[in-house]
Each structure stands twice: as structure tokens, then as C-alpha cells.
Design a protein around this nucleic acid. Structure first.
Lengths: 342, 342
DNA sequence: TTGAAAGCGTTACCAG
DNA sequence: CTGGTAACGCTTTCAA
């Protein structure tokens, strides 16, 4: 027997649908007697209210749409965890979609979410995303949108992320001050803001320390393990060996380790690795990895909280939130300890 | 301007709502001329159809509810990936919920999903789940439910997983045949089917090889990294050192490595580790880990495919699908190579 | 080729 | 305290 509806209960009891509706909502203009009878039947026939039918009236769905580039990136899994926790405690449900780093899929997902009349959208853009047209459409629809982690610049939208350029500068400055000069950079896609900024910070730091920036030491790719693997091999063809490899994220770092292992390069003794990443995953990859630690769970929470605030305020304000990112030193830089003192 | 509706378009054009509806659906009893005018306006005012309002009629929502115990288990992230891929190619949307290993939350999630009238539910039960009452309710509602990975036995429901007991037996038999006798087991929760079965298989293998089963060598906990860490330390208090530790899953194995590292135990040289797990994650934890390899992506796909079949067939059949699980030998067992020959 | 009316499951408003 | 009616956004059937 499929799920019963209010009409069926009303018919059984010879009362109106309105009465049943109110009884189930425990309205105070319904007699206790009536409520009891309605509830008994509802229980008996396993009545379950129709979420979307109710929402049809209230114009509010208590659902949030989330779009991530890839859920098997540990980072995003933890972000989602943070989002979920806030969602749960504030009564929102999550519609999760994945863009697989495709702009088309992303756009399609956005449209589906708008079509579902979600109360808000959380989005980390795909690495392919260029056009901002769809985001204007979202703005028009007055459904609040908050970017997390990856943002589109120059867009009238709120975002939660880290100050990538400054964090990168800080990290590389640290590396250089520790005595290293030959620092390779396996960069993410430069068309994605975080890829670009994490590279700019690297350049900033080198320049500030009067170290010439060598284009051959920077290789651009995507954000995956495979990109890290390829990137390292690519640079390695030049027959140089770096002192330190700076990976734009932890997935890339993982690929770098793959490559080094395969090439028989000892790490951390020969080559140090530093990366953007999060503690949980970095410590699994290698205890020696030095990272700019971003807490994805926190990022998810902050993003969701900001979104809810926008929903409650009925406004699409343009707020940029930065979450902290501190250097977490692993043994990968230990050979430099002497140098640091210098 | 909030999202416009069909009525608004109809009013603008001085036609009926029905006409607009049909025009937008490209029905063939509407003139091309009319369709053009409707589409132009729809475009202009950024019309986006209301997903749930349409579904209200069709009794079909093209949404699937998914419940996982924890999304930051790499395993489930990959399962979800598999689910999403099948969903996308067959036009379903995913409502993702997380139980956090709590039976209460799980129940609440199930009710929400039923309330949303999802077309089907995919569920990996929490480690707390005992009561089957809620599942009877789901069956009553005639919404198909497929368990994946973790199942409740003796329930009239389909499931997709591996043959845990047999896989465990195979793994431990391999370990024993390789010459090891002192094999500890850090087990998952024995109240969850996979925890119980993975332990039973261990016992099976020992018995078959005439090795006495020692209760002190089995420690039961949950399925997390922390449980593995605690478990190893607990067993280690007995002042014995095992030859091999058998962890019920890869998260536990990770915790075991944490503990061994902290205790200064050399691995794989001193102690080997074997576990249930999946390649992607196992190779990140340690290249030396020997696993029963379960492909979570495949599991997700199969589960989703089975669910869709149930939906299409309009029946809640009771199908048990097993996916393959093969041993993947890592260096952690290399000290046994000689023994294997014996 | 178009439209009127009924219906999907629910809630809100107002009358009795 | 209860019920009739309209509404939410859309589709479908049947009549014009």
C-alpha cells in the first residue's frame, strides 16, 4: 500500500481535509478528541506528510543545493561534513551534486537546483568554469549563492575561502628563509582562482627574497594526484633535482610522492615537499609533509552559516570570508634546520 | 525578481496557463508561432520550471535518497561517486544524508526521504542500528530500499556487498599459509553484520588450519581510525607482539599504523598488517598494506543499478548481490616469502 | 490549435 | 471547534 494522504484519513473519519491538516499540525483550534482520532489513524495507516506539497505553499523548501567538483577529493568530503552538521542543526536538507570538474555539468546542476527551488546554493566551481552567465541567472532568481574554496573573482557573490596568495607567499617565504633556493612549483590550473593565486604567492615570495623566478620550475596542470605525478616527471626531465617541491594541493603532493617513489628519489632526505592541504589527509599521505593547513570542516561550516544568514536576511550581499591557514611543519624540511638559524 | 511562473507568462501573452505549459513542453498540438512567443518570454523573464510542482502529478520524483554512516570515510566517498555516475546517466538526482553512525539520525533521515517521496533509498546502516521497525515501515510505503556495504540480515530487502565471511577466511587462510601464527584481529563492531562476518571468517580460517583461536587476540571496537589506534594499544598491553595484525577495515588499519609508529614498532619488517579496504586508500596509507580489495565505486554503481531495476519493476524483491573481493598482496607480508614455500 | 476544469497533497483564510 | 474554498505551480483530459 503506497503512502496514504490526508484526504484518505479525512474520508475515514468523515471530517474535512482541513481538519485533518490542522489536527496533524497540532493547531490549537482543534479539539483534543479530534486530534487523537486523527493521529491514531495516521499512525495506523502509516501516514507520512508530503514534504514538497507543503513547501508549495510556504515558498520555502528547507533544502540547500551543494555542488562540488569531486567528492572523492578527501578535502571536499570533509567540507561536506561541515556543511551537513550545520544543515542538520538548523533543519536544512542537502541536495548534493558533483560537477566532475565539468562546466557543463555544473551548469546543469545549478539549473536543477534552481528548479527544485532550493533555499540557497553552495558551490565550489569546476576547474573548467569560465563563463559567469549562469551565475547572473542565479542572482536574478534571488536564490542566495555562496562560493566556497574556489571562487570566481569580480562577481557579485559571497565566498568563503582562504587568502591563497598570502598563504602561499607565507609558505614559500618560510621555505626560502629555511635555506632552500631550488623550489619547484606543481601548480593547479591557472584559470581557477586558487591555482592562480597559489602561484602568484610563490612568485611574490621568491621576488621578495631576490630569488629569480624560473618559468621552467613551474608546471601547470589540474588538481589531481595524476597531475602531481605527471608534473613531477615533467620537471624531472630537465635533469635537475629540486630541493623542495611546492604542490598546489594535497592531491598533487600525493602524486609527487608517487613519482618520487617510482624514480627512487629519497624523501624527505633529498627532496622536501610542501603543499596546500588539510591535516587529516596530509598526515596520511606522509607525516613528513609540510602544509598550509586549511580546515575543510571549518570551511564547510562557515560557508553554510554564511548562506543561512543570507537566506534569513533575504539579501544577496557580497561578503568575502577568509578562514585561517597556518603552516604546519613536517619533517620534510628538517634538513634545513641549520639553515633556518643562519 | 524571484523566479517567474507559467501564469505570469500566460497573463503577458493573454493565453491560458495550459497553453503555456504545453508550449514549454513542446507538445505537438501547439502552433509553432505560439511556442516561439512563449519561449521568448520564458527566456526573457528567466523562467525555470518548478521541479516538485510537476512531480506532484507524476507521482515520480526522479530523486534517490542515500544514507551513509560517514562521508569522510574515503570508502563511502567513492561509493557515492559510483552512485552519482549511474544517477546522472539515468536522470536521477541524489539527496545525500549522513547518519553519523547514529540509529536515531538514520531513522530521521529515512523519514525525511520518505516524506520527500524519493523513488528509492540506498542505505549503509549505522553501527548502532538494531531495530528493524523503520525498515518495515519503508517496505510498507512501497518505496524500494537497497542496502549497500553493511546490511541487516534476515530482512526482506535487497543488498549489495561482498561475501565478508568468505573473503575474511580467504585472507586469513593466506596469511596462515604464509607461515604466520600469531595473528591479532582488530575487529569492527560485532553488532554490525560486516564486523561479525569479518571476525567469523578469521575464526574459520584459524580453525581450518588447526590454530587455536585466542579470545585475547581479538579486540572489538568501531570502524574508525581511532578504534584501530586504541585496539592496537589495548592488545599491546599484553606484552606480546603479533606477527600480523588483521584490521576489519582500512580506517582501522590506519589507526594501527598510528599506534605502531608511536610505539616504535617497525613495520612491515616486524609486524605485518592486513585489512579489508580499497586500493585507492590502502595505497595511500601504506604501499606495504595487504588488503582484501573491495572496489567502492563498483559497489555504488551496482547498488544504484539494482535500485533502479527495482523502481522500474515496481517490486521490492529480495536480491542479494555480491561483488568481487580479491587479495592484493603488499610488502607487509614479505618476511613470509620463505615460509610460503614451506 | 487553444482553453476550461479538475487534480496532485497540502495549507491558509474566513465563515459558520 | 470545524469546514468550505482558494491557493501553491504545474499537467492532463476533454471539449470547443
Amino acid at each position: 500500500m503506497p503512502i496514504i494522504n490526508q484526504s484518505a484519513i479525512a474520508k475515514q473519519l468523515n471530517v474535512s481535509r482541513a481538519t485533518v491538516s490542522k489536527a496533524l499540525k497540532d493547531a490549537d483550534d482543534i479539539s483534543e478528541e479530534m486530534k487523537k482520532r486523527v493521529r491514531r489513524l495516521a499512525e495506523k495507516y502509516n501516514y507520512i506528510p508530503h514534504y514538497h506539497a507543503s513547501n508549495l505553499q510556504s515558498k520555502k523548501t528547507f533544502t540547500i543545493g551543494v555542488i562540488v567538483p569531486d567528492i572523492s577529493y578527501s578535502f571536499f568530503a570533509f567540507v561536506i561534513d561541515g556543511i551537513m552538521d550545520v544543515a542538520q542543526s538548523s533543519g536544512y536538507k542537502i541536495i548534493l551534486t558533483v560537477s566532475r570538474e565539468k562546466a557543463d555539468t555544473e551548469k546543469e546542476n545549478i539549473l536543477t537546483l534552481l528548479s527544485m527551488r532550493v533555499d540557497g546554493i553552495l558551490l565550489a566551481i569546476s576547474k573548467e568554469t569560465r563563463s559567469t552567465q549562469i551565475f547572473r541567472k542565479v542572482n536574478q532568481s534571488e536564490i542566495p549563492l555562496v562560493f566556497f574554496d574556489r571562487t570566481i573573482e569580480n562577481l557579485d557573490c559571497s565566498s568563503v575561502g582562504i587568502d591563497d596568495r598570502e598563504a602561499a607567499r607565507k609558505l614559500i617565504d618560510f621555505v626560502v628563509k629555511a635555506g632552500y633556493k631550488r623550489v619547484w612549483h606543481i601548480a593547479g590550473d591557472s584559470l581557477v582562482d586558487i591555482g592562480r593565486k597559489r602561484c602568484l604567492g610563490y612568485v611574490d615570495a621568491l621576488k621578495a627574497n631576490k630569488i629569480p623566478v624560473r618559468k621552467e620550475w613551474i608546471i601547470e596542470g589540474g588538481f589531481t594526484r595524476m597531475d602531481g605525478y605527471r608534473g613531477f616527471n615533467e620537471l624531472f626531465k630537465t635533469n635537475e633535482i629540486p630541493e623542495v617541491v611546492y604542490a598546489a594541493n594535497d592531491q598533487i603532493a600525493l602524486g609527487v610522492y608517487d613519482a618520487m617513489r617510482e624514480l627512487g628519489i629519497q624523501f624527505p632526505d633529498t627532496v622536501g615537499v610542501v603543499a596546500f592541504g588539510h591535516h587529516e589527509f596530509a598526515k596520511i599521505i606522509s607525516p613528513s609533509l609540510t602544509i598550509i593547513n586549511v580546515d575543510p570542516y571549518d570551511l564547510g561550516k562557515k560557508a553554510m552559516e554564511l548562506l543561512i544568514r543570507h537566506i534569513d536576511d533575504h539579501e544577496l550581499s557580497n561578503t568575502k570570508v577568509f578562514i585561517p591557514a597556518e603552516i604546519e611543519i613536517g619533517e620534510s624540511l628538517r634538513i634545513s634546520e641549520g639553515a633556518l638559524v643562519n
